[in-house]
Design a protein around this nucleic acid. Structure first.
Length: 572
DNA sequence: GCCGTTTTCGGCCCGACTGTTTTCAGTCG
């Protein structure tokens, strides 16, 4: 495994190759094929490089013989040969032209070739010097747009263009609720990537029907937290909130609400695959309806499920709409019944003020857990803060709190640290006193990320590995853990893996959760909450689990504590 | 470059918007 390029690195090369070919005016379908293959690689849980070396990459849809060979080139030579060649012919910054909104490959190539503009600085100068309007098809407005895009890009260079689901989900749910209360509103729904519970988003989409669309749209632009109205028409508006979130509202006709909701929920890949399949059956899908080509008859519905059913599919839960096999499964009627928040009986990774970064007392956290209706709740403060008798002191406090909450089973636990050696930093005799043990890697760097975890799993007291890869979305990449090996070892040792619900962790990620499920491993959904309101992060863990195709049965903590005890590894 | 319950060759989603055009190409989601 060591030394093989990551899936994201391989995928990036194919995307760059696609960009360069597009600039050269290559066949669009080849370009699309490379981009599709890149997406497939990013959404594959195993090592795509290893698959290619084994001749198995071409079993993935969208990857054929040619692309598999190019992956092998990356392993052997570090780069796709065609990419090396093409990079020599195109100034590196010309690719960046295409990233500016409104500026595509055709225009970028003409600016480069016909005006000899090769850097972003030169592009700016050319627009300011009104030289772009010399090209047919470009005018004063184009120059203005490009300058605006360049300025925006310069301003937001550090901001990152995607925000966390954990921020966007409560925000969009609040706006949906507000709009529903308006007298002109008939139906209101979240849409887009946030409805699919994708871990990050660019903007928050809302779809509605209304008795008076213009009135609802205007109301939306005048909500008190709106600081900027980027667009405002009768049926569509875009606003920016005081915390920088972009909301899009579209008001659509009620008779095709289901078709439009389906369209605007995406993903693009899901919709394209569904439309391609429809074409083969003599149907044409658009956001307004499904047309039977032969008769011209159009099917519309206010109900999204009815759209899927008309097309011969089981209704597909939004979390699965990524063109990752869900359409085939829905065609056969074999979609899984996904786990729901209400199935979760207890949280097995939480903190209190015993950890320096915990914000609430043990009793406050337990009180909130009881109010959530949990049957059990594990206190797993960081081992670092439970040294020198503090572990025993906390056990005494837990004993006292138990008396006050007789209906909630309070589990004593710890989040132990996995040392570089693979040992956990709590003695066995202390671990033996506890009901539940989470073990996690905290400090980097890490030159044997996989072995370290495998060794920790051999400890008979370690029940679950916390946030396996240690990623912090947007801040820190995942450690280079061989997740497939970890899953195998987890099954062999009787250790569980968690889906950590912290908004910037969501670790395991969706495709790894799905790989774990397919291997037969049960996962634990946890909040890793360090304060009262963070207990709700379990909702994000549930969302991630659903994106990983997990059913109630695939999740350990949908079971009673008695059942959990039966399933976990035997203690000495 | 990929793919196949009409196909191993000849297709490859669909519509809106924008800016520049007198009928459309490029871009976007």
């Amino acid at each position: 495994m060591v030394g093989l390029p990551r899936n994201t690195e391989v995928a990036d090369q194919f995307d760059l190759l696609a960009d360069l070919m597009e600039l050269e005016g290559a066949d669009t379908f080849r370009v699309i094929a490379y981009r599709r293959a890149a997406t497939r690689m990013r959404e594959t849980s195993g090592s795509i490089a290893q698959l290619a070396l084994d001749g198995k990459a071409k079993e993935l849809s969208g990857i054929g013989k040619t692309i598999e060979e190019k992956i092998v080139q990356i392993v052997e030579k570090g780069e796709i040969e065609a990419l090396t060649k093409k990079k020599a012919g195109v100034p590196p910054e010309v690719v960046l032209f295409m990233r500016l909104p409104g500026l595509g490959p055709k225009t970028a190539a003409r600016i480069w070739r016909e005006l000899d503009v090769t850097t972003l600085d030169e592009l700016k100068a050319a627009a300011e010097g009104q030289r772009l309007r010399g090209l047919t098809g470009l005018g004063a407005k184009s120059e203005e747009k490009i300058l605006k895009a360049l300025a925006f890009q310069a301003q937001n260079v550090d901001a990152g263009d995607r925000r966390l689901l954990g921020e966007g989900l409560p925000a969009v749910q609040a706006v949906v609720a507000t709009l529903r209360d308006h007298p002109a509103a008939v139906a209101v729904s979240e849409a887009g990537s946030v409805r699919r519970r994708k871990e990050t988003f660019r903007d928050l989409d809302i779809i509605a029907t209304a008795s008076d669309p213009a009135e609802l749209t205007t109301y939306f632009t005048q909500l008190k937290w709106v600081v900027d109205v980027a667009a405002h028409g009768d049926t569509k508006a875009t606003v920016v909130s005081n915390d920088g979130l972009r909301f899009d509202l579209r008001v659509v006709p009620p008779e095709s609400f289901g078709n439009l909701l389906q369209h605007f929920t995406g993903s693009k890949d899901h919709n394209v695959a569904m439309r391609e399949d429809a074409v083969r059956r003599g149907l044409s899908i658009s956001e307004y309806g499904v047309t039977t080509v032969e008769t011209g008859e159009v099917f519309q519905s206010a109900d999204e499920d009815a759209v899927y059913e008309f097309l011969g599919y089981q209704p597909v839960p939004p979390e699965l709409r990524e063109n990752a096999g869900e359409l085939e499964a829905a065609r056969r009627g074999e979609l899984p019944a996904l786990v729901e928040l209400g199935d979760v009986r207890g949280d097995l990774h939480t903190h209190t003020h015993w950890s320096a970064d915990g914000k609430n007392t043990l009793e406050e956290m337990v009180q909130a857990a009881a109010e959530r209706g949990y049957e059990y709740y594990a206190i797993t403060d960081h081992s670092h803060y439970l040294r020198e008798g503090r572990l025993h002191a906390q056990l005494e406090e837990i004993e006292r709190v138990r008396e006050r909450f007789p209906k909630l089973r309070i589990l004593s636990g710890v989040e132990a640290n996995i040392r570089a050696s693979g040992e956990v930093d709590v003695a066995d005799e202390d671990l033996a006193l506890l009901d539940w043990v989470v073990a996690s890697v905290h400090q980097a760097p890490d030159n044997r990320p996989t072995e370290r975890v495998l060794e920790a799993m051999q400890n008979p007291y370690v029940d679950c590995i916390g946030h396996l890869t240690g990623r912090r979305i947007g801040k820190r990449p995942p450690r280079d853990v061989d997740v497939e090996r970890v899953i195998e070892a987890a099954l062999a040792s009787g250790t569980f893996l968690e889906i950590n619900g912290q908004p910037d962790r969501l670790d395991l990620r969706d495709v790894h959760a799905r790989a774990a499920k397919e291997a037969g491993l049960k996962l634990v959904l946890t909040s890793d909450g360090h304060q009262l309101r963070a207990q709700s992060y379990v909702e994000l863990a549930v969302a991630q689990a659903r994106r990983g195709w997990l059913t109630k049965d695939d999740v350990l903590n949908t079971r009673t504590w008695k059942q959990v005890e039966k399933l976990r590894k035997k203690r000495p």
